[in-house]
Design a protein around this nucleic acid. Structure first.
Length: 607
RNA sequence: GCUAGAGUAGCGCAGUCGGUAGCGCAACUGAUUCGUAAUCAGUAGGUCGAGGGUUCAAGUCCCUUCUCUAGCUCCA
């Protein structure tokens, strides 16, 4: 049997055992919904009269083991729709599932023993005995909405780890443990890169070391964008409500925006407005809002003057700070924050230019991701039901995107999410995994037919007629914050040389070697290398320990010998060996080269 | 927002049955001047996330609230 099938069979069967255990523990009034397998096990969704907590995990596991030891037979039966409805008449979720299946669908049910039955396609084991060697453990409990809809029932979801053997379960738990050590929320503050503080939830403080890295990423982004003829702008961080009314954000996004209420003395709050079912009455004519996106300002920058078709594409990039208010419980370290910068761009193109422009964007993405050695997965999201604009334009745009994706990743080399595009246009998202295997959207390329329309943007075409440009929104890092979070976990805090806050750390052995240390520091600095030195009277082991903690790529120790011979002794990050007797000039040269080439790995030797 | 968990010195943690808050590292002072990840000695550091309640007495029990973590939903 293939491993996949094996896992599926066992994990899915264990889910049934979990449901049976929960019912035996908490009574017949338990409502059980669905229990699929997932990457590291399975889960099952329930309505349980009591809240399940970590204290209950052991009881659940024990009950499951007890059930397995009964060695009950699993029997499968085909059943009519009517009989199924009768059988599950007390189970509201099962009833809904049955009703949603096509009339002629053959229904199967599985009995585990004779007192537990579940609606299920199967297949399953034939006797609980087959599951006795399977290793499982309750992982966690969380709330989950029935059918993923927050307006419907809130269920208790119990997650299990399930593996074919104890060893594999153990290995998996160890992997999780190691992943936690890569956690950027631990590494970041430990290396003095960034921190969070209660008075500004979801908004990072960038500390001196982290800010150096941040600036380095910006520098890299600018370097590439210059090469591709992007022009950088910067625009107001807060804008009057009028702008958001035009862009549509007030109607579609106001719940995610930080408002700056009007405070002009004597101004009546006359301008109340219904958004959904909420009445915003605090507004005055001078109500402002922090920008959650850069697009409206970019539209205004374009609109300041008339444009000829000869000017297009026009690429306005910007790195301004944006704010998005999130519901509590949604924040997650740097992965999900309320204040961040994107490597954002709005490109204004003619319809004919869409394809070439997107090819160029993808080539930029490939270049950038390759520099970091991270891999990504592309997702294509197409026209949703509530789309706006001309369906012909949509079709053309989707066809163009699809052609690019097929060409680039091959058919089936990317995921298609039908109907998942934005109401204003289709999009391509680039997803990257974190240490725990969770995927985060980083890069995004979105076509927009709506904003140019709302802002009445035009260009004058060859024949003298005024036409509407298409806007491409794109970001490669996505948000700098999220990307740095991803990189931190990817590199476990040992970043590539070129982006490290400090690239070389200097350790003079005794105070009399400080003079030589200053000379080395000056030389490196003059060559554009970020260098830090510890010229205190601490002993060298302490100095080395501190710089190891910061994961500086090169720790250079210098004593009598080095000062006399004008050389350096290099302790390379990740290795206990030293590279000795390297002439100072040769070392500087090597550092400059690594910066220029943005080398991923550190050298084992410097000849 | 929902479910569960967590919050004690800068960091990592201990604190039993409710009885005056402790350890290690880091910091500071002094000694040590050292060849590749923890030299020695001393000193200082806390409104126990915040607010309220119970009690003679609360880090500990109860309520409210904030922040963080995992997951759900939503998103870059």
């Amino acid at each position: 049997m293939e491993r996949e099938e094996f896992l599926s069979l066992y994990r899915h069967s264990i889910a049934h055992v979990l449901a049976k255990a929960v019912i035996e523990l908490y009574g017949k009034e338990v409502q059980y919904a669905i229990g699929p397998q997932i990457e590291d096990g399975c889960y099952y969704d329930f309505v349980i009269p009591k809240a399940v907590t970590t204290d209950d995990f052991k009881a659940i596991e024990d009950k499951m083991r007890e059930i397995l030891r009964r060695k009950e037979d699993w029997t499968c039966k085909e059943i009519s729709r009517a009989d199924a409805l009768e059988l599950f008449k007390d189970q509201k979720f099962k009833t809904e599932l049955i009703r949603d299946l096509p009339e002629d669908e053959k229904l199967t049910i599985y009995y585990t023993g004779d007192d537990y039955v579940d609606l299920c396609r199967g297949p399953h084991v034939t006797n609980s005995q087959d599951l006795l060697n399977v290793a499982f453990q309750v992982k966690s409990v969380s709330s989950a909405y029935w059918r993923g809809d927050e307006k419907r029932d809130s269920l208790q979801r119990i997650y299990l780890y399930v593996f074919p053997s104890k060893d594999e379960l153990k290995a998996h738990l160890k992997w999780i443990q190691e992943a936690l050590e890569r956690d950027h929320k631990k590494i970041g503050p430990a290396q003095d890169l960034f921190m969070f503080q209660e008075t500004a939830p979801g908004m990072a403080y960038w500390l001196p070391r982290g800010w150096k890295m941040y600036q380095e990423l910006l520098r890299y982004s600018r370097e590439i964008q210059d090469r591709h003829n992007y022009e950088e702008i910067s625009a107001p961080l807060i804008n009057n409500k009028k702008l958001w009314l035009i862009s549509g954000h007030w109607a579609h996004y106001v719940n995610n925006m930080f408002l700056v209420p009007g405070v002009t003395e004597g101004t009546e709050a006359t301008d109340s407005m219904m958004v959904g079912e909420k009445n915003y009455s605090i507004e005055t004519p001078d109500t402002m809002a922090a920008k959650p996106m850069n697009c409206p300002n970019a539209m205004m920058a374009y609109k300041r003057t008339v444009h000829s078709y000869k000017e297009l594409p026009i690429r306005y990039s910007e790195f301004d700070v944006i704010h998005r208010k999130e519901k509590s419980g949604q924040m997650n370290g740097l992965f999900r924050v309320q204040e961040f910068r994107q490597d954002d761009d709005h490109t204004f193109v003619t319809e004919e230019q869409i394809k070439d422009e997107i090819l160029d964007i993808i080539s930029i993405a490939d270049e950038i991701y390759k520099t970091f050695g991270v891999t990504y997965r592309a997702e294509f999201s197409t026209r949703p039901d509530d789309f706006m604009g001309d369906i012909e334009v949509w079709n053309k745009a989707e066809a163009a995107l699809k052609e690019i994706l097929d060409q680039k990743y091959g058919e089936g080399g990317y995921e298609i999410n039908e109907g998942d595009g934005a109401f204003y246009g289709p999009k391509i998202d680039l997803q990257i995994k974190d240490a725990l295997g969770r995927e985060w959207q980083c890069g995004t390329v979105q076509l927009d037919f709506q904003l140019p329309h709302n802002f009445e943007l035009t260009y004058q075409d060859k024949d003298g007629s005024m036409k509407e440009p298409v806007v491409i929104h794109r970001a490669i890092f996505g948000s700098l914050e999220r990307f740095i979070g991803i990189l931190t976990e990817h590199f476990k805090g040992a970043y590539p040389f070129w982006m490290c806050p400090y690239q070389v750390a200097l350790v003079p052995i005794r105070e009399e070697h400080n003079e030589y240390a200053h000379k080395v520091a000056d030389k490196l600095q003059a060559a554009g290398i970020r260098v830090e030195a510890d010229c205190t009277d601490a002993n060298m082991k302490e100095k080395i320990k501190k710089f190891k903690m910061y994961k500086d790529p090169f720790i250079v120790v210098m004593g009598d010998k080095e000062a006399a011979e004008n050389t350096v002794s290099i302790n390379v990050r990740g290795s206990n060996k030293q590279i000795q007797n390297v002439p100072l000039d040769r070392f500087v040269e090597e550092c400059v080269k690594m910066n220029k080439e943005r080398t991923l790995d550190l050298p084992e030797a410097i000849d």
